[in-house]
Amino acid sequence: MKILVAGGTGFIGTNLCAELAERGHEVTALSRSPADDLPAGVDSAMGDVGAYDSIVETVADHDAVVNLVSLSPLYQPPRGKTHDAVHLGGTENLVRAAEAGDVDRFLQMSGLGADPNATTAFLRAKGKAEEVVRDSSLEWTIVRPSVVFGEGAEFTNFTKTVTTPRVTALPGGGETRFQPIWVGDLVPLLATVLEDDAHVGETYEVAGPQVLSLADVTELVYEAEGKDVTIVPVPMAVSKLGLAAVGPVPFVPFGPDQARSLEVDNTVSDNDVTAFGRDPAELLTLGEQLGLDPSSADERPVQTT
């Protein structure tokens, strides 16, 4: 199968391209800039999903398209970009190009809580993009993962950006809950979606084996570095006021939308990894990926699903 991965040079994209190539597919990573360090057997194509004319010919030459293009929900969008423009507009262009090019399969990466009426701009745009995919003539599948971790992932770097070792303040005491999934567990599911017709027309919510609060994640990240940390709660209302005040400042990476995102848990009620024959309890935990011994008495207690 000839597969185009839009956003194929990013963290998830690079791992997915490698998985697909290992399974014998012809894989092309689409990005706005040329890539020099792609996995073996993966080709590169230049194009911007925000500009239809730059992608239409490339898309038409493939059997399947994967849309991984995304702005981070953890930071304010870069100057000149919006969630609607990238997530909704980019999806509209990819779907239009795929329909025009007689592409069969379309895999859309969305996010937990995606809804046109969601409380954050990120989730609203993701929700509207899902509607575009569902209304298309393509054989589509939508996957909504919780936050994804692994080597080079944004999630743990974000945690260290907003915290400090020894003593750190967290909005609401860091009670926002996540269910992180390891990229090495996620990408085989994505590859299987493209290979198995049984997944056409389905929307899957996938997550890891543990529910962790932001405070739990902070403690695990610093424990892996041999450091202690004490969490100082900051009332959510105070955090929202502070982020609202700095929101318009270009060099501050957080704003009101990020504050609102901390009021929404990023977890699943039913983990759809079971649709792929996986037992959630067998997936890699964040602590294990950070090199912590699961049997160690020092590992932080976590809630399991």
Rank of each mutant, 00 (worst) to 15 (best):
G247T: 14
P180T: 02
A198S: 14
T159I: 15
P165N: 11
K160S: 12
E202H: 12
V238T: 14
S213K: 00
E175D: 12
P171Y: 02
G172R: 03
V147F: 13
P188H: 07
E223R: 15
A191S: 15
A191R: 02
N157G: 07
D196H: 11
E205D: 13
S213A: 03
E205L: 02
F178G: 00
L241W: 13
D196I: 09
E202T: 11
P233D: 04
H199N: 10
T164K: 15
V221C: 02
A198E: 13
P165M: 11
V229I: 08
P235M: 06
E154V: 14
T163W: 04
L214G: 01
D216P: 04
E202F: 00
G201Y: 09
A237F: 12
V183G: 05
E154L: 14
T168S: 15
G172Y: 02
T168P: 06
K160N: 05
T164D: 13
S146I: 05
A237E: 13
V147G: 02
G152K: 11
E202Q: 15
T192N: 10
E154M: 14
E223V: 00
W182R: 08
K160P: 00
V238C: 03
E205W: 04
A198K: 13
E225V: 08
D216A: 03
A153R: 03
L212G: 00
P250M: 05
G173S: 08
D185Q: 12
G172D: 06
P250G: 05
G173L: 08
P250S: 11
P233A: 03
V232A: 14
S239K: 01
V167L: 15
K240G: 13
M236A: 12
G184W: 09
